[in-house]
Lab assay of single mutants.
Amino acid sequence: MGFKLLSKLLVYLTASIMAIASPLAFSVDSSGEYPTVSEIPVGEVRLYQIADGVWSHIATQSFDGAVYPSNGLIVRDGDELLLIDTAWGAKNTAALLAEIEKQIGLPVTRAVSTHFHDDRVGGVDVLRAAGVATYASPSTRRLAEVEGNEIPTHSLEGLSSSGDAVRFGPVELFYPGAAHSTDNLIVYVPSASVLYGGCAIYELSRTSAGNVADADLAEWPTSIERIQQHYPEAQFVIPGHGLPGGLDLLKHTTNVVKAHTNRSVVE
Rank of each mutant, 00 (worst) to 15 (best):
H180L: 04
D164Y: 10
I58F: 15
I227M: 10
Q49G: 10
I50G: 01
V45F: 02
G89L: 04
A209E: 07
M18K: 10
I40Q: 15
G72Y: 04
T93I: 03
L243S: 14
N184H: 02
L6N: 14
T109Y: 08
A200K: 03
E33R: 11
A95E: 11
M1H: 02
V189Q: 00
L9H: 09
P239Y: 03
G246D: 14
Q235N: 13
N184T: 02
A19R: 11
R142V: 13
G210I: 02
G43I: 03
L204N: 11
L24W: 06
T14P: 13
L204S: 10
G177K: 03
G53H: 09
N71M: 00
F3P: 06
E39K: 13
P239S: 02
T109H: 13
V171I: 09
L9S: 11
G158F: 09
E225V: 13
A234E: 02
V266A: 13
S181Y: 05
R142E: 13
L73A: 05
S7V: 09
V189N: 01
E101G: 12
F174E: 00
T134P: 01
R263W: 12
V171L: 07
H252M: 01
H252G: 01
D164G: 12
N92F: 00
S208T: 14
F63P: 05
R128N: 11
K91Q: 15
H57M: 00
V45W: 01
R226A: 08
R128W: 08
D77K: 04
G65M: 08
P152R: 00
D183P: 01
A111I: 05
A218E: 13
S208P: 07
V256I: 12
E99P: 04
S113N: 06
P170S: 12
Q229R: 13
I238H: 01
M1G: 05
F116G: 03
D183G: 02
N211S: 10
A51L: 05
E145A: 13
S161Y: 11
R226L: 08
V28D: 10
L10G: 12
G53S: 10
E145F: 13
D118N: 07
S7M: 08
D248S: 13
A90K: 09
D216H: 08
Y34W: 15
T253V: 01
R76S: 13
E101T: 10
E267K: 13
P152G: 01
T207P: 12
T134R: 01
T134K: 01
E219D: 08
S137C: 04
E80Y: 06
R263T: 11
G32F: 15
Q229Y: 12
C199L: 01
F174P: 02
